[in-house]
Structures are given as structure tokens and as C-alpha cells.
Amino acid sequence: MNAFRLAGDMTHLLSIILLLLKIRATKSCAGISLKTQELYVIVFMSRYLDLFRTYYSLYNSLMKIIFLGTSMCIVWYMRSHKVVRQTYNNDEDTFRHFFLVLPCFVLALLVHRNFTFIEILWTFSLYLESVAILPQLVLLQKSSNIDNLTGTYVFLLGAYRGLYLFNWVYRFFTENHRVRWIPWLSGLIQTAIYTDFFYYYIRSWKNREKLKLPA
């Protein structure tokens, strides 16, 4: 495993730890989009379907279990925890899952590598992951008060796929020269969606100001 890949995975893991920390320590999920979190559950469930069928490494299986477990745990907190669920911005988190899930699924049916069950779901998970942050970004735009943990959570979550892009470039030159359009383009779009957020996050960090996104 190269350094970009490891850094990407660790950034992803750290973002989740940070979010769970925020929820557990402050007993609040204010500013967090349940829509985005539910989309991540769908992403992980459709991508890691092969978890018990094919084994690659202990690291790999462990990370998959962690991503599946934590994403479901976060959704549980936001939906069912008696204190946390009351802090959820129900009225502002208005993005409809359906408008992301359906087009991604149709696209996976049309654009894929092999027409098999596992392959279609894997492709669907990449398409869906690339846009899953949209409800969260829309919610942040509506929020006048974005706390540090939420801002940093979104920043790390965006940085993770960006680091994967470097990992793919690295692997392209060191392992085998084969073009993998589906993950590359999805990852590129995923990272590009964060561009605006990155700009405002870094600017607020440099100026030591509170993060605010223009509506």
C-alpha cells in the first residue's frame, strides 16, 4: 500500500471518529445531514457486499466492517437516540435521497464493466458516493453556525477521496498501466464537489474566522 492510499484511508477513518466524537461528547448532531449519512450506509452496503465472499487482507476486511458499523451507528444515533435525535436539523435537511439514488442506479445499469449483480452494485456505490455529500453541503449552506467539529469532519471526508486520486495516479505508473474510468471519474467528481467548501474552510482557518458558506 502506498502512502497516498494509507493517508486517504486514515483521513476517512479520522473523519468518522470525529463525527462520532461530536455526537457522543456533545450529545448533538446539529449541522449533520441524516440524508448524507443514510446514503453512506447504502454506499457501504452495496460496495462491501463481497466482504464475506472474497478475502483480501485483514486490514481490508477490518476497515470494511468499521465503515459499515460506524455508518449504521451514526444513523442510529440521529434517528433513535432520545437526546441526539432532538438536535437534528429536520426542517433544513430537505434534500431527497431519491433524486440521487435513482439516477446513480440507472447510470450503473447503463455504464459498468460487467453485467453482474456484484459489479452493478459496486459501480452504483461509486456513483452514489461521488454525490452523497450534496445533502450535507446544502445543509451547511443553510446553517448560520457551523461548529468546528462539523467543518473539520466535512473537510477530512472530502480530503480522503482527493488522496485516493493521488493513489490512483501513483498506482497507474507503478503497478499496471490500465485505465479505470469508473472509479477515477467518480473520485474526480466527488473531490470537485468539495472545491468550494475547501476554499471557504481553508480561508476561515487561515483568517481564524468562523466558517460560513455563502448561500
Binding site: 476517512h12 483480501y56 459496486w122 485516493y164 498506482r171 499496471n176 490500465r178 479505470r180 472509479p183
Partner: peptide, 10 residues
């Protein structure tokens, strides 16, 4: 090959 990437990436 293709499958190797798919299995070892997250």
C-alpha cells in the same frame, strides 16, 4: 488486474 484493485481498495 482489474479485480485486484477492486478487492484491495475501499
Amino acid at each position: 488486474s482489474h479485480d485486484k484493485f477492486k478487492k484491495d481498495e475501499l
